[in-house]
Design a protein around this nucleic acid. Structure first.
Length: 707
DNA sequence: GATCCTCGAGTTCG
DNA sequence: CTCGAGGATC
C-alpha cells in the first residue's frame, strides 16, 4: 500500500472514530490511540501539503481569526414554528389542519425535542462540508463555517464512513448499519446521496458541559456564562475559531432544507433515520405516533421529565410525518402549518430590572432585592427576585434598567442570573450600594474578609422585627398566630422591645395591636385572636433548650449547632459561663462561632433578655433522655440527604425517623453522603447524587433498612 | 494552605 | 436553592 492510500485510509479511520466518540458517544479506541492517528495524519500532511482537502480531520481547528462574518443567503427560508402552550392548544392546531386537509385525520406524527440552542444550516457538496451558517432572519444568515468545523459532532464528510476501516493494516469491510448505534439499526438503504445537500440542526451545549465550563471560568477568575443557550450562541459568533474550538459545542440534525441530485426520504421519521445513517447526530428520543393524542401524551411526558434530558429543552416539536402533506398544508406567515412547538412552561425568562430595594435581615445584613417588571415563570407572577449581595451585582455588572435573566431556584425562589448586555440602550444606570441602613438611617459597615454589609445599630427597628419573627418561627419557639403585622404593631406601641417582652404581653397590648390592623382581612374577633395568641405564647415556654438556643439568634448558631451545644452544656446557665476553649471542644465549633457565643452572652441587653426569660419561666434544660445519643440504631454511621416529596413522611418526619434510628441527615449531597432518599418531584440533588454515584433509595427501602 | 463539607441565613409567591 | 463562611480534613 502506498503512502497516498495510507493517507486516505487514515482520514477514513479518524472520521469514523470521531463519529463513534462525538456522535454515538461510544468510542472504540482510547484518546491516546486517537491522538496517535491524528499525529500520523499531520505528519503525512506536512510532507504532502497538496494532498490536504477541506474534509481532512486536521481542518477542524486552526483557521485564522476573521474580520467579520459574511452574509449567506439560505437556499430556502429557514422557518420558525408556532407555539402551543398546552394540550388544548395542540388539539386546536390539529383541528385546524384537519379541516384544511382530510388526510390529516389519519396522519402520523413525529415528536422530537426542541432544544434551546442555536439553529444552524450546514451545506454539503458531493458529501463534503463546505459551508455553515446561522439562521439569521431566516432568509440571510452569517457564514460561520470555520467555527462550525471545530464542532466535532458535525461530519466533515458524509457518509461519515463507507464501511471501510482499518486501512493500512487489515482493511475490513463492515456493513454500515453495524457502525451506527445498536439501538438504531438502519432499516433502509441510503439511496443516492444528493450532490448538494443542505441540512438544519440545533447547535448547543449540554448542561453538564456548561456547568464544567463555568466552573473552569470561575476558577480562572473570568466572567461566567448565564446559561447553555447564551454560551452556545456566543461561542459560535466568535471571530476566532480557536475560541469556538475550546467550547464544548455539539449538535443534533433534524431537517433537510434543500437537496439536489439525489434521494431524500419522504417522511420525517425515515428522514431522521436517513440522516443518522449518513453520520449526522440525530436525537434518540424522537417517536412516531399514528394519532395526535398519543403524540401529545408523549410530549407531555417529557415536560414532566425535562430534567432527565442532558440539554436544556424549551419544548417538544410535533410534526406531521408525511413531509409532502406537511408542505401542502402551507404556512401562516413564517410558520409552517405542518408542525407545532409544544412548549414547556418557561423556567428562565428575561424581564426589565426596574429598581433595587435593600432589605435588612435579623443579623443586620443588607440584602439587595431586584424589583422587576412582573413576569410569569413556571406558573406564578414574579415581581421580585433576590440579588444575593452587593458584590454579586458588581461582578455581574447588573444595572438598573437592564434586561435581566431570571430563574426560580429549584423552581421556587426567583433569583437574577445576570444581565443581557446586548439589549442595552444606554439609559441603564449602574447601581451603588447604600451608605446608610434603609430602615434606621445609621451608617452601614463592612468587615474585613466578608462580603456582607451590616447595619450595626443594635436598636435598628427592622432588625428587631426580623429577630422576633425568627424567634417565633416554626423552627424556633413556634408561636402560631404571631405574624409580622402584629409584631410591627407591638413594637410600634412600645409593648415589645426585645424577644423576652413577648412573655410579658397583656391581653390589652395584643388587643390594641390587633385592632390597629387592617380590619378588612379580619376573620376572627380581636378578643379571640388575643386569647389564642396568649395561649400560644404560654405554650411556647415548654419548648426544648435546642429550640430556644437556636431561636435566640446568636450568630452562627442555627438548628444543628444549637442541638450540639445543648447536648454538651445542658443549660443556658452552663453555656453563659463557658469559655471559648470549652466551647471549641464541641465538634463544629471553631474560634469564630465560640467568640460569637461568648460575645452574645456578654452583651448587657442580652443578659437582660435572659433574666426576663428566666423570670417568665422560659428556661429549659436538657433531660438525660434528650441528650442520649442514638449511636447504635440500624442507620448509625450513615448520612442521608432527602429530595422531593415523600408520600408517608413530612420533611421533618423523615428527618426525625432517620435520626431516631441513628442516622444523620444533611442538606447537601457530597461524597460523604451514603443515601439519597428520593421522593416525588426531586430537585437537583438527584443529578448531584447520580454524578457522585451516591446510592439512591425510595422511602420503602428506607423503612426496610430500619427493620 | 488548599479543598471539601456542612451550616446558617436569606429568599418569593399563593 | 443560592451564596458565603466556618470548620474539618488532607
Amino acid at each position: 500500500m502506498d503512502l497516498r492510500e495510507r493517507y486516505e485510509a487514515l482520514k477514513r479511520e479518524i472520521h469514523f472514530h470521531n463519529y463513534r466518540y462525538h456522535v454515538l458517544d461510544a468510542p472504540l479506541i482510547s484518546d491516546a490511540e486517537f491522538d496517535r492517528l491524528m499525529a500520523e495524519l499531520r505528519q503525512l500532511e506536512a510532507e504532502h501539503p497538496d494532498w490536504v482537502t477541506p474534509d481532512s480531520p486536521t481542518q477542524r481547528a486552526g483557521a485564522p481569526p476573521a474580520e467579520k462574518f459574511e452574509k449567506v443567503h439560505h437556499p430556502r427560508p429557514i422557518l420558525s414554528l408556532s407555539n402551543a402552550f398546552n394540550a388544548e392548544e395542540t388539539r386546536a392546531w390539529f383541528e385546524r389542519i384537519r379541516k384544511l386537509d382530510d388526510r390529516v385525520e389519519h396522519a402520523a406524527f413525529v415528536v422530537e425535542p426542541k432544544i434551546d440552542g442555536l439553529s444552524v444550516v450546514l451545506h454539503y457538496r458531493n458529501g463534503v462540508f463546505v459551508q455553515g451558517a446561522t439562521r439569521g432572519d431566516g432568509e440571510v444568515g452569517e457564514d460561520i463555517t470555520a467555527n462550525l468545523r471545530t464542532v466535532k459532532a458535525i461530519p466533515l464528510k458524509i457518509p461519515v464512513t463507507d464501511g471501510r476501516i482499518g486501512g493500512g493494516r487489515e482493511e475490513k469491510q463492515i456493513p454500515l448499519f453495524e457502525l451506527t448505534s445498536p439501538t438504531h439499526p438502519l432499516s433502509s438503504n441510503i439511496g443516492l446521496i444528493p450532490s448538494y445537500l443542505v441540512v438544519r440542526g440545533e447547535a448547543f451545549i449540554t448542561i453538564k458541559d456548561f456547568e464544567a465550563l463555568n466552573k473552569r471560568l470561575e476558577e480562572a477568575g473570568e466572567r461566567t456564562y448565564l446559561n447553555p443557550r447564551n454560551t452556545a450562541a456566543g461561542s459560535l459568533r466568535q471571530l476566532d475559531p480557536a475560541i469556538t474550538a475550546s467550547r464544548p459545542l455539539t449538535l443534533l440534525v433534524y431537517q433537510v432544507v434543500y437537496a439536489e441530485g439525489g434521494d431524500v426520504p419522504s417522511t420525517q421519521w425515515e428522514l431522521l433515520e436517513w440522516l443518522r445513517a449518513l453520520g449526522f447526530p440525530v436525537t434518540d428520543i424522537a417517536r412516531r405516533f399514528t394519532d395526535i393524542e398519543s403524540a401529545i401524551a408523549y410530549a407531555e411526558s417529557w415536560a414532566a421529565r425535562r430534567d432527565e434530558l442532558p440539554y436544556e429543552a424549551d419544548g417538544m416539536v410535533i410534526k406531521v410525518d408525511d413531509l409532502r402533506l406537511a408542505e401542502e398544508l402551507g404556512y401562516v406567515g413564517k410558520d409552517p402549518r405542518g408542525a407545532i412547538a409544544f412548549k414547556f412552561p418557561a423556567r428562565e425568562v428575561t424581564t426589565k430590572l426596574l429598581s433595587i430595594d435593600v432589605e435588612v435581615g435579623r443579623t443586620g445584613v443588607l440584602t439587595p432585592r431586584a424589583v422587576l417588571e412582573p413576569v410569569e415563570i413556571g406558573g406564578v407572577i414574579v415581581r421580585n427576585a433576590t440579588l444575593h449581595n452587593f458584590d454579586y451585582i458588581a461582578e455581574k455588572d447588573i444595572r438598573i434598567g437592564d434586561r435581566v435573566l431570571v430563574k426560580r431556584a429549584g423552581d421556587v425562589i426567583p433569583y437574577v442570573i445576570g444581565p443581557l448586555p446586548e439589549a442595552r440602550t444606554g439609559t441603564e444606570q449602574p447601581y451603588s450600594p447604600p451608605h446608610i441602613c434603609p430602615a434606621c438611617g445609621q451608617p452601614v459597615e463592612h468587615f474585613e474578609g466578608e462580603v456582607a454589609w451590616y447595619c450595626v445599630n443594635a436598636a435598628c427597628p427592622a432588625q428587631l422585627v426580623r429577630n422576633i419573627e425568627h424567634f417565633v418561627s416554626k423552627g424556633g419557639m413556634d408561636i402560631a398566630g404571631l405574624g409580622i403585622k402584629i409584631v410591627e404593631k407591638l413594637i410600634e406601641s412600645g409593648a415589645v422591645k426585645d424577644i423576652a417582652d413577648l412573655y410579658y404581653l397583656t391581653r390589652q397590648d395584643i388587643l390594641e395591636a390587633v385592632t390597629k390592623k387592617d380590619r378588612e382581612t379580619e376573620k376572627e374577633p380581636p378578643g379571640k385572636i388575643a386569647d389564642n395568641l396568649l395561649a400560644a405564647i404560654a405554650a411556647s415556654k415548654k419548648q426544648s433548650l435546642p429550640r430556644l438556643l437556636a431561636a435566640l439568634g446568636i450568630r452562627g448558631v442555627g438548628e444543628v449547632v444549637a442541638r450540639d451545644l445543648a447536648q454538651a452544656f445542658g443549660s443556658l446557665d452552663a453555656l453563659a459561663g463557658a469559655s471559648p476553649e470549652q466551647l471549641q471542644r464541641v465538634e463544629g465549633i471553631g474560634p469564630n462561632i465560640a467568640t460569637a457565643i461568648v460575645d452574645w452572652f456578654r452583651q448587657p441587653q442580652n443578659q437582660k433578655v435572659l433574666d426576663k426569660l428566666k423570670a417568665a419561666g422560659v428556661w429549659p434544660v436538657m433531660h438525660s433522655s434528650q441528650s442520649e445519643q442514638t449511636t447504635n440504631g440500624p442507620l448509625s454511621g450513615l448520612t442521608f440527604v432527602i429530595t422531593g416529596t415523600l408520600a408517608g413522611f413530612t420533611r421533618e418526619g423523615v428527618k426525625e425517623f432517620i435520626e431516631q434510628n441513628g442516622g444523620k441527615v444533611t442538606d447537601s449531597v457530597s461524597k460523604k453522603t451514603d443515601y439519597l432518599v428520593l421522593g416525588e418531584n426531586p430537585g437537583s440533588k438527584l443529578q448531584k447524587a447520580q454524578a457522585l454515584g451516591v446510592k439512591i433509595i425510595g422511602e420503602e427501602e428506607l423503612r426496610r433498612m430500619v427493620q
